[in-house]
Amino acid sequence: MSIVQIQGEEYMVEYDPASHTLTLRGTVRLQNSDEYAPITELLQTAHDAASAAGQLTLDFRQLQFLNSSGISMISKFVINGRKQNRVPLRVLGSQEIYWQQKSLANLQKLWPKVVIEIL
């Protein structure tokens, strides 16, 4: 399986099945959960494919902005991951991006097994 991309006007989502990494870049401020559905589906695909590999990495280091609908979408994905408890999650953030310093730790409170690395 090759790299899958979702290209928006101000963002890019990229899933690399070889490294089990899903990367979000740019500004993701979509209107509602329907608009987030393609990203949610790609997250689920990546999660299912990672069950054998042992880990899924979410790379947010170039994600400048995510609105509250997007934070809610990622949080629900983490909650569902916790319920299934099959794939450990690793989240990469950047200390240059203010919201990540302030809010990424919330994901670990939803599921203490989530590993957060702010680089």
Binding site: N32, S33, N67, S68, S69, I71, S72, S75, K76, I79, N80, N106, K109, L110
Partner: peptide, 19 residues
């Protein structure tokens, strides 16, 4: 905050007030 997120994951409803 966490209550609302857990509830929205259950019901698939938008998490009102999260912002």
């Amino acid at each position: 905050y966490f209550q609302r997120l857990e509830a929205s994951a259950e019901s698939n409803a938008p998490g009102s007030g999260l912002g």
